[in-house]
């Protein structure tokens, strides 16, 4: 079985983002960029499936400017076999990403596509579900466990209040949650080998996808700062403030 993993280059999770003074966006000048943490988990899961003999080939895909090739090399150093870079100027919207990936999926015919559940920059949490919708494949989102058995994917998902397990007919789309695995490190000999692994470059035009504008970002602001706290003088006053000012539900739910 072939697995496609889609990865995104994002601001490193440690970087404290600053909003530009003109409120046009956050300032990404010379900040550290890395593989999106959820994508790293997706790559790791694919490698584990390959090591377990379930998968035979891992193809990693990323969409964006030339710099994303750095993350594709990282994914190949970790264990992906080859890479496809879809070259675009800007970061396309989730629906456009899903359309581009659909074309790749149609050409590559994988048994499974694994993606991070969301990227830590735009926090959209959409691409995996949209890809599943466009391909008509079943989806297992927010996965904390993935097993392939008898031509089915058994996916345990993190849902509100607990875990839920689904059985999906293959081919299927899986998106990863944090607890699925702990990604490995890239070993030096593998980093060297990854430089020689094949990297194919395509454009949206090659794939016959028109990148359409659905949503525009008008401005970006710093979130309101936490207000200075107050002291209360009794338990009653505390409970009153929590209920009526902070609007906290002070009871067990469910």
């Amino acid at each position: 079985m072939k697995i496609i993993v889609s990865v995104k280059r994002v601001i490193d999770y440690n970087v404290k983002v600053r909003v530009k003074t003109d409120n046009s966006d956050v300032d990404l000048t010379n900040v550290k960029m890395s593989l999106n943490p959820f994508c790293e988990i997706a790559v790791e899961e694919a490698i584990r499936l390959k090591e377990a003999g379930v998968a035979s080939e891992i193809v990693v895909v990323s969409i964006g400017p030339n710099a994303v090739q750095e993350q594709l090399r990282t994914a190949m150093a970790l264990g992906a076999d080859r890479a496809i870079h879809i070259e675009t100027e800007m970061q396309p919207e989730p629906l456009n990403v899903a359309k581009l990936l659909t074309k790749i999926v149609e050409a590559e015919e994988p048994g499974l596509v694994i993606l991070g559940k969301q990227s830590i920059d735009s926090d959209n949490n959409q691409v995996g579900q949209m890809l599943a919708a466009l391909t008509g494949w079943p989806q297992g989102t927010f996965a904390s466990e993935v097993k392939i058995e008898d031509g089915k994917a058994l996916v345990t998902r993190e849902v509100d209040g607990g875990l839920r397990t689904l059985s999906l007919t293959l081919p299927a789309v899986v998106t990863t949650d944090l607890r699925l695995n702990e990604p490995r490190y890239a070993k030096l000999p593998d980093i060297m080998k990854a430089k020689r692994k094949p990297m194919e470059v395509k454009t949206p035009a090659d794939l016959n996808v028109h990148l359409k504008k659905h949503i525009s970002q008008l401005k970006v602001e710093t979130p309101p700062q936490r207000q200075v706290g107050i002291k209360v003088d009794s338990v009653d006053a505390l409970i009153d403030k929590l209920k009526n000012e902070a609007k906290i539900i002070l009871r067990k739910l469910g």
Partner: peptide, 26 residues
């Protein structure tokens, strides 16, 4: 990466992992 790679080629180190993100660095 070049510094680590050349150290490896000179056999000054026998194995290495490079953190690919600050999460791994941490």
């Amino acid at each position: 990466e070049q510094a680590i790679t050349s150290a490896f080629e000179k056999e000054l180190l026998s194995d290495a992992v490079i953190a690919s993100s600050d999460a791994q660095r941490d």
